[in-house]
């Protein structure tokens, strides 16, 4: 199953990457949740990318990280920066999503009480990710895992890295 928003991915794969890296995320625990988001935020900031783009990238990474912590056995976040786009992919090995359309609905969540008590699992994560990305695609396979791809356009006056 899949759902998406915005431009096609093919355009992006032709852009040369100025930076590319993969960050592992531990599933089943919140102990290090937010660690990868902090790293990515600092990296993008260092590339002199506009504050707004950094904020959005940090947000979509954080929500993806929390999803991996909440629902997957393990996963990774892949960051790719080109002169025009920041691309973040969240790839996990986990239970997968049964009904993506339902999962994309604001307020829908399969989170346990334990997760909800911590202020997660309000059914806002995927909506936030979609709203804060210019391009978003989600694919999932039951029992195998979920793959999110988020692209954020870098402002035209970007001259960093």
């Amino acid at each position: 199953m899949a759902a998406w928003k915005g431009l096609t991915t093919n355009v992006l794969s032709h852009e040369p990457a100025l930076y590319e890296n993969s960050f592992p995320v531990e599933g089943g625990t919140y102990e290090n949740a937010g660690h990868v988001s902090s790293q990515i935020k600092a990296l993008l900031k260092g590339m002199k990318i506009s504050k707004e783009v950094v904020r959005r990238a940090a947000l979509v990474t954080y929500e993806s990280e929390i999803n991996i912590c909440s629902y997957a056995r393990s996963g990774k976040i892949v960051l790719r920066v080109t002169p025009e786009h920041v691309t973040i992919e969240a790839i996990d090995e986990g239970q997968g999503i049964v009904d993506i359309e339902l999962a994309m609905q604001e307020g829908y969540s399969t989170a346990t009480d334990r997760i909800r008590e911590m202020g997660f699992g309000a059914g806002m994560g995927l909506c936030n990710i979609k709203n804060f990305s210019d391009f978003f695609r989600i694919t999932s396979e039951i029992g195998k895992g979920t793959h999110l791809k988020m692209v954020i356009r870098i402002d035209k006056d970007f001259d960093g890295i």
Partner: peptide, 16 residues
Amino acid sequence: ITRQTHQNIVAVASLK
């Protein structure tokens, strides 16, 4: 202002 006390509030405050 919140009443969440677990460590993830630090990540949120720091990211934002």
